[in-house]
């Protein structure tokens, strides 16, 4: 009898359920990349758990042949937290969206990230409520006309990565649904990181918010609107890679290479920087003023809540011995009635 692990292919990660996202939805691409990444990282399927909340993205676990919980709106990080604390050997993915993660579930997302629970959170950002058919979300731009904002959105949008960095995120990254190679690589990095990995994926809702990210995906414009981050490399972009980002004081500015400006003058990316200032600055670069960075903004090693919790359990056992009920019952002053 062979003891070798069976070699699994992408399709082995598909459940027997029909995928019910709208044709053309960006979620299909993320699902495909996820299966591909999982088949390459060697975690047995039974040790994978997908946890989601409510929304289009949150149907994701039903389509994966792994363990999964389709939970309630916004709370997926909390379910994942309890599971990870008690079953640290499992690899847990939290699938959420801009409404689920940043609106109703903002509190849980914030605390999960600051605890650095060893989870991978993928936030599908389509800047709209899809499952409830077209209301604005916390990432919808100002002025956006939606079903619930006929005269335009008047609340300031959130930047998911700025939130994650503000919550002391140890792994913060961004990718795009149709940029499949980059997306796959980003998910792989997220899976490898120990601690909370937070990945924002620009995802197109072709029914309720089609083209929300077209500036970042159109062949004609993307080389000017997107800048790929690489650790230790200068921030260069443009079709001819002739433009870059330079720091002017504390502010980024776009400069043209040549004419006395070389790559050495540019901002160099450092995903391992101890302070999150650079990552935060990058998260604030928004279209159309700046090209928007994709890739890993920040990847640092910090203690993880689940490990620390279990370390305390081990330490208590080492010091006090394992639990003994009879000792427990006799805690404090006791007396005997003859």
């Amino acid at each position: 009898m062979s003891t070798e692990l069976p070699v699994l292919k992408d399709k082995d990660y598909a459940s027997d359920q029909d995928v019910r996202w709208c044709p053309g939805c960006g979620d299909y691409s993320i699902l495909a990349q996820m299966k591909k990444v999982l088949s390459s990282i060697g975690v047995p399927r039974e040790n994978l758990v997908f946890v989601s909340g409510i929304g289009c993205s949150s149907r994701f676990p039903y389509y994966m042949n792994t363990y999964g919980i389709h939970s309630i709106h916004g709370r997926a990080p909390a379910f994942a937290t309890g599971l990870k604390c008690t079953r640290p050997e499992l690899q847990i993915w939290v699938i959420t969206g801009d409404g689920d993660g940043l609106s109703i579930g903002g509190n849980h997302l914030m605390h999960c990230i600051r605890r650095n629970m060893d989870l991978n959170i993928v936030l599908f950002n389509n800047r709209i409520y899809g499952l409830t058919k077209g209301q604005y979300s916390p990432t919808s731009p100002l002025g956006k006309v939606t079903k619930s904002t006929p005269m335009g959105v008047i609340d300031n949008p959130l930047h998911p990565l700025s939130i994650a960095i503000g919550c002391e995120g140890t792994f913060v990254a961004r990718s795009i649904d149709v940029n499949i190679k980059h997306l796959g690589e980003t998910l792989r990095r997220a899976a490898e990181h120990r601690g909370t990995s937070f990945v924002e994926v620009y995802q197109n809702c072709n029914v309720f918010n089609d083209g929300a990210w077209s500036y970042a995906t159109d062949r004609d414009t993307k080389s000017d609107t997107i800048i790929e981050l690489e650790h230790g490399k200068p921030l260069v972009f443009g079709k001819n890679r002739d433009k870059g980002i330079r720091l002017n004081g504390m502010d980024p500015e776009i400069v043209e290479l040549g004419k006395g400006i070389s790559e050495d003058d540019l901002l160099f990316h450092d995903e391992k920087a101890a302070e999150p200032s650079l990552a935060y600055l990058l998260s604030r670069m928004r279209h159309p003023e700046f090209p928007e960075p994709i890739g890993v903004f920040r990847a640092v090693d910090k203690p993880r809540y689940d490990e620390e919790l279990n370390r305390q359990i081990d330490a208590a056992r080492a010091k006090l011995g394992p639990g003994d009920l009879n000792r427990l019952f006799n805690t404090g002053d006791t007396w005997t009635v003859a």
């Binding site: 309890g82 605390h111 305390q312 639990g323």
Partner: peptide
């Protein structure tokens, strides 16, 4: 009672408290 294998999690709110328990 950590040496009894008791894991306590002070959650960020009541909802997270029960949800973490369901996850466990």
């Amino acid at each position: 009672y950590k040496n009894y294998g008791v894991r306590t999690f002070q959650a960020e709110d009541e909802i997270a408290a029960i949800c973490s328990a369901i996850g466990a």
